[in-house]
Design a binder for these strands. Structure first.
Lengths: 273, 273
DNA sequence: CGGATAGTTGAGTTATCTCAAATGCAGTGG
DNA sequence: CCACTGCATTTGAGATAACTCAACTATCCG
């Protein structure tokens, strides 16, 4: 039992039921991290092309027009290592990450675990779980995570009422599918150093999109076991590889942040593009 | 250049432009393999829940009503090892497999290759390629393959005109996404024998759905290099594993067909369910 | 302070790979 | 019909990437 306090009763969590009004007044009880990209949710810094943003737009639109109570949402904050979306749990909610990092994974009975993707601010937790709850997948907070829960039934209603949203959903699904295919390629056909280098570069790229890169430096809250579970390796081996990368002055890791020092060489190792 | 005659001019291929009328008279110039499941395409034996079947229904419906020339399709047959859907090719067509097996894969510049899925009769070649052509993926015939090409633009029009189809597409995408996730788990976290056993069981299950299992026996056209590329192993190692499976009397392979002898044990090895 | 969680490092093991050789089969061209 | 070439499969020997185990240290948290 590695995590004895999973799924603690909601009583210990901070819950708000925002009354839907307008972007500027969205009741996020949190500091604004970044609004520069014009993202409709004042909390998160997702690119506006995201499904998240589109849904948000639509919510506002619908809200302004007619059905003010249509989409309730709840904001929660959970500490790191807590599960957000648990397998057995029959979940009627769809979480969207506002702040922090999470990891979506499958765990087998014997403890083997594969992280399928990291979920960053603005990402919907498992687009694939939109229509039906996804059994077998777990989403776990890597850092402290603030997220927003929408009722699945509400979202579905919204979705089917607006075919263009359904199209956006399809596009997102396709995108994620292509990502999943790349992951399979990485796991099936690439050696350890390549996998790790690619993971780092992919994260850097995604963070850059969100304005979360500081030149070559990013917040890097992943533990080595996260990297291991994402790359299909053991954490011991990850440690050795990261050590090598640092000794070769490709990257520098310290104090939960990672700097890419020699991008060219890192890309070469990663067989990037 | 392993396949010097890829993308042969269409002149050498058998092309039909069926005038859309009714299921019974669908102009498939091919023997009927199986119609018992009521599948609308008289050629293939896909379960009727498939997107393929739904689209087909809709085509007929639409056709009966108004726009007879709306969806043209072309039937082609290619020999084994020929590519159906080539990466660089700007493909405006969506193929649907009528007969035979194909493999959808990604190939890297240095020749490493990962097969993402096998495409069986009734499967649309890459649902994910519905909206936009998928660059980077190749679909290659394993056996001789007969397929039907729809114009992407036509299909898209049909899709957006019928939101229920869009929903079916979404569901198919989700399903395939879950498959892709399982593949990542297999490749990242399971040993060779487990991967191979799972591949065999998965294929058996899919074939059974199509009525293509003969008790415990199935046609098995895969070469060991297909299995290797699908499981992230080398064909040498696959050979050894399959050899072990046979010596342990779990399966029997001969003459392009495979029989599951000890299903219980095979499931145990595969960590099935 | 004690107890969990992380990270590092070394030694030895093993699953899988690479290379190579031998065989069989299918297709091709002469 | 036969030689020939290319592909698939099997098998063995040896190499190696990644794993397991274990010990040690550092860090964080109550």
């Amino acid at each position: 039992m590695p995590f004895p306090h999973l799924n603690e009763p909601a009583g210990t969590l901070e819950i708000i039921k925002p009354q839907m009004t307008h972007a500027a007044t969205l009741p996020c009880k949190l500091e604004v991290v970044s609004t520069e990209r014009g993202s409709p949710c004042s909390v998160c810094s997702a690119p506006e092309s995201h499904l998240c943003a589109k849904v948000q737009e639509k919510i506002e639109e619908v809200d302004c027009l007619s059905s003010p109570a249509m989409l309730e949402s709840t904001i929660q904050t959970v500490p790191s290592r807590r599960s957000i979306y648990h397998p057995k749990e029959w979940s009627e909610f769809i979480p969207v990450i506002c702040q922090g990092w999470a990891a979506s994974s499958i765990t087998l009975a014997d403890g083997r675990r594969q992280i399928l993707s990291f979920v960053l601010p603005g990402d919907m937790v498992s687009t694939a779980g939109f229509l039906e709850p996804m059994s077998g997948h777990t989403v776990e907070a890597v850092t402290e995570v603030t997220y927003r829960k929408f009722k699945r039934s509400d979202l579905k209603a919204l979705l089917f009422a607006h075919p263009d949203l359904l199209e956006t959903l399809s596009r997102t699904l396709v995108e994620e599918r292509l990502e999943a295919d790349q992951l399979a390629l990485d796991l099936g056909r690439r050696p350890a150093n390549e996998r790790i280098a690619r993971l780092i570069l992919k994260l850097a790229k995604r963070l850059a999109l969100r304005g979360m890169m500081n030149d070559r430096t990013m917040e890097f809250p992943l533990r080595q076991r996260h990297i291991a579970d994402a790359t299909g390796l053991t954490s011991v081996h990850v440690s050795k590889m990261i050590g090598e990368f640092q000794r070769a002055e490709l990257i520098e890791v310290s104090d939960r942040s990672l700097t890419i020092i020699n991008e060219t060489e890192l890309c070469r190792i990663a067989d990037w593009r």
